[in-house]
Design a binder for these strands. Structure first.
Lengths: 110, 110
DNA sequence: CACCCTATGTAGAGATACGATATAGTGAGG
DNA sequence: CCTCACTATATCGTATCTCTACATAGGGTG
């Protein structure tokens, strides 16, 4: 499973509330991804068994809208997703203390 | 400039010490990226004027190694890079408090 | 019927990622 | 001289990924 920005956005959105299944349009709004990016990501996550999907059991007429397909992270998906976010967090460390002006900052040897 | 994971890794490595220029092999080790990924990224960053490059002025025989090409972020690159990392930080929020179960599922806010 | 909203999804072109490979310099060993 | 190893930069080719369009389909309204 290759961790790309769209993949991470989806994982992040799902991990915010791992017990709350999300459907596609919902995830599009949460992540800002277009459907043409989101759905391939969802399919790849399912192929990797990080994600499970189920059709909503609802009568479209009664609901007044098409049925939704709900996606939820598997146990493995939750573990792997948290790991992925932790790696990202390491990439974007929280505010470093300002290194004032003076600092002989390491290198500069030429 | 499209922000991909490799791009962010490079920005992160360079921003850790914005005044310390890095050379390719150095960045490969810092980011873990293979040369086939790193150098195209460096070229894209230069095309976007986020990065400047200069050949090391050294005599290879005296140094006992080939000359290096040093890369450093431009002012714009530093600004844009910091913004990019801030966005990432929003994607990978620090440890959330454990939510028992019930969770009134508020929407995410980004 | 036309149009808009929800909802899921595919197609195709273009951009990216990365293993393999190329180039080039130093230096050691056979 | 040749080969190998190490440093160093960089490209090539293919597989993968992204994203703008587009397709499909159900519901409701005018």
């Amino acid at each position: 499973m290759r961790l790309t920005i769209p993949v991470v956005k989806v994982l992040s959105a799902l991990l915010a509330e791992p017990d709350a299944p999300r459907y596609g349009l919902d995830l599009m709004r949460l992540t800002g991804l277009p459907s043409g990016t989101l759905y391939p990501v969802l399919h790849r996550l399912q192929a990797a068994a990080w994600l499970a999907a189920d059709w909503e059991d609802v009568d479209p007429v009664a609901a007044g809208r098409p049925a939704r397909r709900y996606y939820r992270l598997t146990g493995e998906g939750i573990r792997a997703g948290r790991l992925a976010l932790a790696e990202l967090r390491a990439l974007a460390p929280a505010e470093r203390p300002h290194q004032g002006g003076a600092g002989a900052t390491g290198a500069a040897a030429w």
